[in-house]
């Protein structure tokens, strides 16, 4: 029965042809899960930051009554960033969502930077115990956000590389694996501005 042997060989070839894309698919799913899960740490840290900021503004309000605009700008930027973060946490692989939170974070960093710059002119505020504590906590959270972002970007990088190597690149788009966005805050000088300390 030679044709049965031929059939068996054909069957094995077909099985390999099925198993090969399946293994690529599985690998990409694992890596996608990994970077999406990595966003959860960013989410935790950002939420903590968004909780701190209203307290900070509330404390500062008592000392800088004339800087209402600056304070309101911080709150507005905070609210916008919180909304953008909620959207990104729901869709950690969506380029628009990540771009949204990245730019909202940059804007918030800028607003906070201006607040701290203005605060330099209020020695009483700089001496306030609670203000110092909040600033310290904010700085520490800032470090943690950066650390969590690094972990997320590392995971995205691994995923994107796996997506682009041959032969995965032939199938990735067909399976619906889109290129994942890196989470980068565009203006580092504005981010640094938060590090102003009252010590």
């Amino acid at each position: 029965m030679p044709y049965i042997i031929a059939f068996a060989i054909a069957a094995v070839v077909i099985a390999v042809l099925i198993a090969w894309p399946v293994s690529i698919y599985n690998r990409l799913v694992v890596l996608r899960n990994r970077f999406q899960n990595a966003y959860s740490q960013i989410d935790v840290q950002l939420k903590r930051r968004y909780d701190l900021i209203p307290n900070l503004v509330e404390t500062a309000k008592g000392y800088m009554a004339h800087e209402k605009q600056t304070l309101e700008a911080v709150i507005a930027a905070r609210n916008q960033a919180a909304a953008a973060n909620t959207a990104a946490a729901a869709q950690p692989g969506d380029p628009n969502a990540i771009r949204g939170i990245a730019s909202a974070e940059s804007a918030l960093g800028g607003a906070l930077g201006r607040l701290f710059a203005v605060a330099e002119a209020y020695p009483n505020l700089k001496a306030n115990e609670q203000m110092n504590q909040l600033t310290e906590e904010l700085t520490s959270t800032e470090n943690r956000v950066a650390f969590a972002r690094q972990a997320y970007n590392d995971a995205v990088l691994v995923y994107n590389t796996q997506r682009q190597v041959f032969p995965n690149v032939l199938l990735a788009d067909a399976f619906g694996f889109r290129e994942a966005p890196l989470f980068e805050v565009d203006k580092p000088q504005e981010r640094e501005a938060v590090k102003v300390s009252f010590g």
């Binding site: 990595a38 740490q41 650390f147 690094q150 972990a151 997320y152 590392d154 995971a155 691994v158």
Partner: peptide, 13 residues
């Protein structure tokens, strides 16, 4: 106690 948190580190970290 620290292990679950350490599991959130990325490969390079």
């Amino acid at each position: 106690l620290a292990l679950p948190a350490l599991r959130h580190l990325s490969g390079p970290q």
